[in-house]
């Protein structure tokens, strides 16, 4: 080996070392990103395994058509409809508050508020979204329910309405924030064109900006529904543990999430059918929210493509 070759090899060796190190780091980082794929696969695998075991004991027809849900009683019935009914009832009530108020708040923040007012109001509103849900549960049970009982004395101590109201206000900032993003993305030129045709600010807002931002606003609405369906602690604390088919919001009901909590708080052995029910219910919940999240993401991407 002559001298120049020696110099060359010492210069090149660290280079090769570096290359190996760079490749290793890149592989490790890719593995970290793939954790998200493993998580999704893990969720599906765990839910699917127990759900299939559940359906070996209970027919899928009974699960979707039976109108009683009593897996914890001596005479067991496995009809998920009462739980779905409770979930939909609470979520629908919450949407009656969160969607109109959230959209109005978004319109105020995007179209009417000055920059300074928006910079103060938006984070304050978002504090509502950061309050832990167990706190909202406490508020629903100890503040809102007594208030409702003063208005309608037949209101039960646990009821769907108090959970709905409180959940509505919890989700309001999500709707406001996402809808505002969509409205801010509407190009200024559309507003100017409407003004030039003689529209007032109200007409520009309602007939130009809101329709132009509609896909983003729909995405926000769907995400809000998905959030309401998956919300757990408020309903576990305030809405009760009585699965039944009813549309009366003053009564005690049970949602899918509250049922999972109820079983988890008891000491259920792994082989029992009760243990498997929570995975079957969880699977249904997961499918419902996943579908809505996928639609919402698709809508969000669509409006971004249109205006960016």
């Amino acid at each position: 080996m002559n001298e120049s070759q020696h110099v060359l090899s010492t210069l090149l060796r660290p280079r090769a070392d570096h290359d190996r190190r760079e490749k290793l780091i890149r592989a490790v980082l890719l593995l970290f990103s793939a954790v998200s794929i493993f998580t999704t696969l893990g969720i599906i695998a765990v839910l699917l395994r127990e759900t299939l075991l559940f359906f070996q004991e209970v027919s899928i027809v009974e699960f979707f058509t039976e109108t009683r849900w009593t897996p914890l009683f001596a005479s067991k019935k496995f009809g998920v409809l009462p739980l779905v009914n409770g979930t939909v009832l609470v979520a629908a009530g919450a949407m009656l508050i969160a969607l109109p108020l959230g959209l109005l708040a978004a319109i105020y923040l995007s179209e009417y508020a000055s920059d300074r007012a928006r910079k103060i109001l938006k984070p304050m509103l978002e504090v509502l979204a950061g309050v832990p849900t167990v706190v909202y549960g406490y508020f629903a049970l100890t503040f809102v329910t007594p208030l409702l009982q003063k208005i309608w004395p037949q209101t039960q101590a646990f009821n769907a309405l108090s959970a709905s109201i409180v959940m509505g206000f919890m989700i309001l900032p999500l709707v406001a924030s996402l809808s505002e993003d969509a409205m801010s993305a509407v190009p200024q030129s559309l507003r100017q064109a409407a003004y030039a045709l003689g529209a007032t600010r109200f007409e520009v807002t309602l007939r130009t900006v809101v329709p132009a931002a509609l896909s983003g606003i729909s995405a926000a609405f769907i995400l809000a529904v998905s959030r309401a369906i998956g919300e757990t602690m408020i309903v576990a604390i305030a809405a009760g543990q009585q699965p039944k088919l009813t549309l009366n919001p003053l009564q005690s009901i049970e949602t899918m999430t509250a049922y999972i909590v109820q079983v988890s708080l008891g000491d259920t052995p792994q082989q029992s059918i009760a243990y498997k029910t929570i995975f079957a219910v969880g699977m249904l919940l997961f499918m419902m929210t996943l579908m809505m999240n996928l639609i919402s993401n698709w809508l969000t991407r669509r409006y971004r493509e249109v205006y960016e």
């Binding site: 127990e50 998956g230 757990t232 969880g282 997961f286 929210t289 809505m292 996928l294």
Partner: peptide
Amino acid sequence: RFIEINIANLAGVPSIIYGLLGLGL
């Protein structure tokens, strides 16, 4: 793109589902 879609969807999975994942896994 698959990783990104996964992350976006995981952000919207109800927290109680993560509980079931933790219980099983």
